[in-house]
Simulated scan of single mutants.
Amino acid sequence: MNDSLDHDITAFLDTWTLDPNQTKSCFLDLKAHLDGLDGVRCEFVSRPGITYSLRAAHANQKKRGLFAMVDVIDDDPADRWLSVCFYNELVDDPKDMGDEVPGGLLGEDAKCFDMYESDDALLAYIKERLGAACHSASCE
């Protein structure tokens, strides 16, 4: 991870003091998972009061600038939740746990998985989707 990304995320995490639904730990777990995928680089985009976005791209991607976005939704800082989105064609959803969002990822159709509270099964499922989308993106 680069120093700027590390600094920006640390600064954000330092402000995330209220976490009744334990979504901060889920965000950290997803970030660590992305950090462990070969060829993945991340960018952090901060829009206080709206979202804090961890955008993941694969070094081999040619078609798009990312394959997944892990958003911390900041409409209520005391009750932040996560929305993890993928381009439709980069990910499958065999358990039908995600939502189809037309134009939902940088203007393209997306599959999004929302986490309103810590959920180990959903977290594991999203990690599987991240791995699959990473692989698909590396072949784009």
Results as ranks from 00 to 15, higher is better:
Gly49Ile: 11
Gly49Leu: 01
Gly49Ser: 09
Ile50Val: 15
Ile50Thr: 14
Ile50His: 15
Ile50Gln: 14
Thr51Met: 08
Thr51Val: 13
Thr51Gln: 06
Thr51Asn: 15
Tyr52Pro: 04
Tyr52Lys: 14
Tyr52Gly: 13
Tyr52Thr: 09
Tyr52Ala: 14
Ser53Leu: 05
Ser53Gln: 14
Ser53Ala: 13
Leu54Ala: 07
Leu54Phe: 03
Leu54Thr: 00
Arg55Leu: 13
Arg55Met: 11
Arg55Ile: 15
Arg55Asn: 12
Arg55Ser: 09
Arg55His: 07
Arg55Phe: 00
Ala56Tyr: 10
Ala56Val: 08
Ala56Met: 05
Ala56Leu: 10
Ala57Val: 07
Ala57Phe: 07
Ala57Arg: 11
His58Val: 03
His58Arg: 10
Ala59Ile: 15
Ala59Leu: 13
Ala59Gln: 14
Asn60Pro: 04
Asn60Glu: 08
Asn60Lys: 06
Asn60Val: 05
Asn60Gln: 11
Asn60Leu: 08
Gln61Tyr: 00
Gln61Leu: 05
Gln61Arg: 07
Gln61Phe: 00
Lys62Ala: 13
Lys62Glu: 12
Lys63Ile: 13
Lys63Tyr: 06
Lys63Gly: 10
Arg64Val: 00
Arg64Ala: 02
Arg64Tyr: 04
Gly65Arg: 10
Gly65Thr: 05
Gly65His: 02
Gly65Met: 02
Gly65Ile: 02
Leu66Trp: 12
Leu66Gly: 03
Leu66Met: 14
Leu66Val: 08
Leu66His: 15
Leu66Ala: 14
Leu66Cys: 13
Phe67Tyr: 10
Phe67Asp: 01
Phe67Glu: 00
Phe67Gln: 04
Ala68Arg: 03
Ala68His: 07
Met69Lys: 11
Met69Pro: 04
Met69Asn: 10
Met69Glu: 12
Met69Gln: 13
Val70Tyr: 04
Val70Gln: 01
Val70Phe: 00
Val70Thr: 08
Asp71Tyr: 03
Asp71Phe: 10
Asp71Val: 08
Asp71Ser: 12
Val72Tyr: 03
Val72Met: 00
Val72Gly: 05
Val72Glu: 00
Val72Pro: 03
Val72Asn: 01
Ile73Pro: 07
Ile73Asp: 05
Ile73Ala: 09
Ile73His: 11
Asp74Met: 03
Asp74Asn: 02
Asp74Lys: 04
Asp75Ala: 11
Asp75His: 14
Asp75Thr: 12
Asp75Asn: 14
Asp75Cys: 10
Asp75Trp: 11
Asp75Glu: 10
Asp76Met: 06
Pro77Gln: 04
Pro77Met: 06
Pro77Arg: 04
Ala78Glu: 13
Ala78Gln: 07
Ala78Pro: 04
Ala78Tyr: 07
Ala78Arg: 15
Ala78Cys: 05
Ala78Asp: 14
Asp79Pro: 02
Asp79Arg: 15
Arg80Asp: 11
Arg80Thr: 12
Arg80Lys: 14
Arg80Gln: 14
Arg80Pro: 12
Arg80Trp: 07
Arg80Glu: 11
Trp81Ala: 08
Trp81Lys: 12
Trp81Phe: 15
Trp81Thr: 11
Trp81Asp: 10
Leu82Met: 05
Leu82Trp: 02
Leu82Gly: 02
Leu82Phe: 01
Leu82Tyr: 03
